[in-house]
Amino acid sequence: MTRTPHQETTLLRDIWISYRSQPLWVQFWVALILVPVNMASLLFLTEPMGLWIAILANIAMLSNLPIMLYERGFTNFMALPHILPWTILVCLILFARPPATGLYDVYLWVLVAVDLVSLVFDYQESLAWLKDRQRKAPPSA
């Protein structure tokens, strides 16, 4: 099925309205901290483990795009794709820390802090989504 320009505009508007309906602190967190800090990993691709860090940092966010399109906005389900890559990312940086100095070293600490904060919320939202889904599931025979 081909979308008309009106349908695409409506989809983007629905996603924007959903984003703007989030608490103000969430909007700031996502737009000014979470997305920019994870995307900044692309600036360090040539650093030790830089490619892996960029993949793990960004794959979690990119996997939210199909969810946003399907759900026509923000939902708790968007937390689920963050769990595995960002948990691996945080563990990689904390326990197999790549050699880093200067700006890269500072960046890794900021990335860990931001993604750890996000994961606290992501684990809670994922559990809420799974419980809600379980509650809505038809009883088994």
Rank of each mutant, 00 (worst) to 15 (best):
Q27L: 04
I88W: 02
R97F: 01
Y104F: 10
G50L: 03
Q27C: 08
T75P: 07
W16S: 15
M49E: 13
P5L: 07
V35K: 03
I33D: 02
M78H: 14
I53W: 04
T75W: 03
Y107M: 06
M78A: 15
L51V: 15
M78R: 13
P81S: 05
V112T: 09
L11A: 07
L127T: 13
L103E: 13
N58C: 14
A31W: 05
I15R: 06
W86Q: 14
W29E: 02
S126E: 01
L11H: 11
N76S: 07
M49F: 10
W109Y: 09
L45A: 08
M39V: 11
L24N: 04
A128K: 06
Q27E: 06
L80K: 04
W86L: 12
T101D: 15
V110E: 14
M78T: 14
G73P: 02
I83L: 15
F74T: 13
V106T: 10
W29Y: 12
L130S: 00
L24M: 06
L103S: 13
T75H: 10
W52M: 12
L89R: 00
L130P: 00
G50I: 03
L24K: 05
V35M: 07
Q22I: 00
R135I: 12
I83K: 00
L127G: 15
L94G: 02
E8A: 08
M39E: 02
L51S: 14
V90R: 12
R72T: 02
L45E: 06
R20V: 02
L11D: 08
W25R: 02
D14L: 09
L130E: 00
P138T: 07
E8L: 10
P85C: 04
S126P: 00
F44E: 06
L108D: 00
S118M: 04
L65K: 01
V26T: 12
A31M: 08
M1S: 14
S63E: 04
L43Y: 13
V26C: 15
S21F: 03
L45I: 09
N76C: 05
I17S: 14
D115T: 14
I17G: 05
Y123M: 10
R13Q: 12
R3M: 12
F44W: 11
R72K: 12
A96P: 12
K131P: 04
L56R: 03
Y70H: 14
T10R: 14
F28I: 10
L116N: 05
S140L: 15
N76V: 03
L11E: 09
E125C: 11
G73A: 02
R97W: 01
I55W: 03
I93Q: 00
G50N: 02
Y70T: 10
T46P: 09
D122V: 01
P23G: 05
E125A: 13
L45P: 11
A96H: 11
L24H: 03
D115C: 13
A57C: 08
T75F: 03
L43C: 11
P138G: 06
V90K: 07
L111S: 08
T10W: 10
D105L: 09
D115G: 06
Q22G: 01
L127C: 14
N38H: 07
L34W: 04
N76Y: 08
V120I: 12
Q7V: 09
I93W: 00
F77H: 12
L92E: 08
R97M: 03
